[in-house]
Amino acid sequence: MSERTERIALPCPACSPDVELVHEILSPGGQATVRCTECGHVRKTELPEPSTVERKVVVSQGEESFSTSVEAPAEEQLSVGEEFLVETDEAIMTVRITSLELAEGRTDEAPTDDVKTIWTRAVGNVSVNVTAHPKSGAHDETYSFTLQVPGDYEFVVDEEDELSGENFTVEGIYLRDDATGYEYDKLDYTGDTAVAKDIKRLYVRDESTTAWSAW
């Protein structure tokens, strides 16, 4: 969540002393330097403190979830996919918004003032589900496992990796619904890359040198 936008509505003593106009914040601080976007007048002024509201946050982490709260600017626009920090008794966590609950239902975007509950999932450290098959290509002998990795860990299609005692080559990446910045929800071309926090499931080829067994 942003601490302060780069623009703010203020009266301008030069061209609009009674009506607020958009001003650019050139230099923040106790006495900020601002410029009126209508007439270009530059001055120093004390910026008003934004009003804040406390909102409930539900954090999903693997199979578990817990509730906490955050203070956020009342008029800040929240949206699904946005990430921010929450502080708990145990740790400070990075979370990603998965849904915004309003009085009349859920939405993907809304100002904080209208939101009752912010639904999120932890993305600092994540679990990635993996489906693997042996080098022989026998897909009826596939098996599954789960990797625990940092949320920003990168997986690349057709690159070999070794994690948690598993040696494998990534063949396909299925993305989560809240992943942004990707053209498709499935990545399977050589060099396609995704970070762990965006991944719903990895499909890989087992590269173990020992005799392969699903057991």
Rank of each mutant, 00 (worst) to 15 (best):
R176I: 00
A194H: 00
I8P: 00
A14M: 13
E90W: 02
V58G: 02
V58T: 14
M93N: 11
T112R: 01
M1D: 05
K116Q: 12
V123D: 05
Y182Q: 05
Q31K: 14
H139N: 08
V22D: 09
D18P: 00
R96H: 08
V59W: 05
S60Q: 14
V86H: 10
L26I: 13
E141S: 05
R96D: 04
P48E: 11
S136W: 02
A122Y: 08
Y184L: 10
T146W: 02
T33R: 15
E63R: 13
L78N: 09
F168Q: 01
V86Q: 10
A211C: 03
Y203C: 07
K186F: 13
Q77D: 11
V42C: 06
L47I: 08
A72L: 15
A194Q: 04
T210V: 10
S60Y: 09
V42T: 15
S164R: 09
R55I: 11
Q61R: 15
G81Y: 08
C39Y: 09
E24K: 12
V22A: 11
K135S: 14
P28F: 11
E166Y: 14
T5Y: 11
Q77L: 14
D18W: 05
T37S: 11
P150C: 10
Y203M: 12
A91R: 15
A14Y: 08
T190W: 03
A110H: 02
A122T: 09
